[in-house]
Design a protein around this nucleic acid. Structure first.
Length: 204
DNA sequence: CTTCCGATTGAA
DNA sequence: TCAATCGGAAGG
């Protein structure tokens, strides 16, 4: 277990938070007490005055949580069959979020039940290599939207471990910054980041 | 109300 | 390259 990420740390521009979330851990906790973990290896930032942001046009029932304070989940259904998980960032009244696009899973930490529940055609290291895939693997759906990201909740975040931070510091881990995927507006904005050394990045 | 289409994925 | 599949958002 790492140090929990608190709302204050997320209360900054999504453009600052998104790259810093790489190497951090997303934790999914079930009512049974079972937990699934994955290291974040790919993120995208969405912010104000960003035509690709769901909150660009107006406040709606779906995107309202993005208008509130940082530290909550924003989860939506896409293409009628997948879900996407976001972390709400920045101050109250500033709609912005970071889309978590891929997790690197350490299968030695996964429990037997978790293995049974995720039947995926992919190789094990790719089970969470994409925003829709990570939600499928962690069993995340819209019922978990607007959840506070704090320990003991169904979802929370943990800071980079000392070992991971060291890997960034000594250059073993490097970040790639590029343009976002799957959008039709704001395509020129370089607001996607991924861990170059990870095999779990959705797309390069 | 009706129409359109998407912050995706996996198969052809 | 393209279909699956459906809820939210836009348009009339």
């Amino acid at each position: 277990m790492g140090e929990p990420i608190v709302a204050a740390w997320l209360s900054r521009s999504s453009l600052d938070v998104a790259p810093e979330l790489i190497g951090c851990t997303l934790v999914r906790r079930f009512a049974s007490g079972e937990e699934l973990r994955g290291m974040i290896v790919e993120t995208e930032a969405y912010t104000v005055n960003d035509p690709a942001c769901h909150a660009y046009r107006r406040r709606t029932a779906r995107n309202q949580v993005m208008f509130g304070p940082a530290g909550f989940s924003y989860i939506y259904k896409i293409y009628g069959m997948y879900h996407c998980f976001n972390v709400v960032t920045d101050g109250d009244g500033i709609p912005s979020a970071v889309l978590i696009r891929a997790l690197q899973v350490d299968h030695s930490l996964s429990t037997a039940v978790a293995h049974i529940q995720h039947q995926s055609p992919d190789k094990p290291h790719r089970v969470a290599a994409g925003p829709g895939k990570l939600c499928r693997w962690m069993q995340i759906d819209t019922s978990l939207s607007s959840t506070p990201l704090v320990p003991g909740s169904p979802l929370w975040l943990e800071q980079r471990s000392p070992a991971i931070q060291q890997a960034f510091d000594d250059g073993t881990h490097t970040l790639v910054q590029t343009t976002r995927i799957g959008i039709s507006q704001g395509t020129e904005l370089p607001w996607r980041w991924y861990l170059n050394e990870s095999p779990a990045v959705s797309r390069r």
